[in-house]
């Protein structure tokens, strides 16, 4: 399935809903969208991976890049993911210790200090 990207605002957070396959071919589009969001002033960015069917190292690199970009801009970055297959990818790469990962958008937007999920 092709990559799909949709942006909406939830409780003063910019939520980027990602769907389909994020790989070496499609990841540049995800990078462009995230750069656009930050350049246009978004500072609380949540990437919802709920619709993602495939995620590889290129996609993970794009997510880390977005987090760094927001950190420089004093912004916050978080991920929403509850799929075990994807969570395993974050664990194996130790990126679960780098990203705040939330089970739901509600949990992500409720975490006002960006310290990450409590459970």
């Amino acid at each position: 399935m092709e990559l799909s990207l949709a942006t909406r605002t939830v409780a003063e957070h910019t939520v980027l809903e990602v769907g389909g396959e994020v790989d070496v071919y499609t990841a540049p589009r995800l990078r462009e969208r995230l750069v656009e969001l930050v350049d246009s002033g978004a500072r609380n960015v949540i990437v919802d991976l709920g619709g993602v069917e495939f995620l590889d190292s290129t996609g993970l690199g794009v997510l880390v890049g977005a987090m760094k970009r927001l950190r420089v801009a004093n912004g916050r970055f978080g991920l929403v993911c509850s799929k075990e297959a994807l969570l395993k990818i974050f664990r194996i790469t130790a990126l679960d210790q780098v990203f705040p990962i939330y089970p739901t958008i509600e949990a992500a937007t409720a975490d006002s200090d960006g310290s990450g999920p409590t459970s």
Binding site: S57, L60, M67
Partner: peptide, 26 residues
């Protein structure tokens, strides 16, 4: 090699090196 967590988000690490390291970790 697999990169340690504190290096994964380091500013000095390029996107290419990060992707390579993460790819092999996977």
């Amino acid at each position: 090699t697999k990169l340690p967590p504190d290096e994964l988000a380091a500013e000095s690490l390029t996107d290419e090196d990060l992707t390579t390291g993460v790819g092999f970790a996977l």
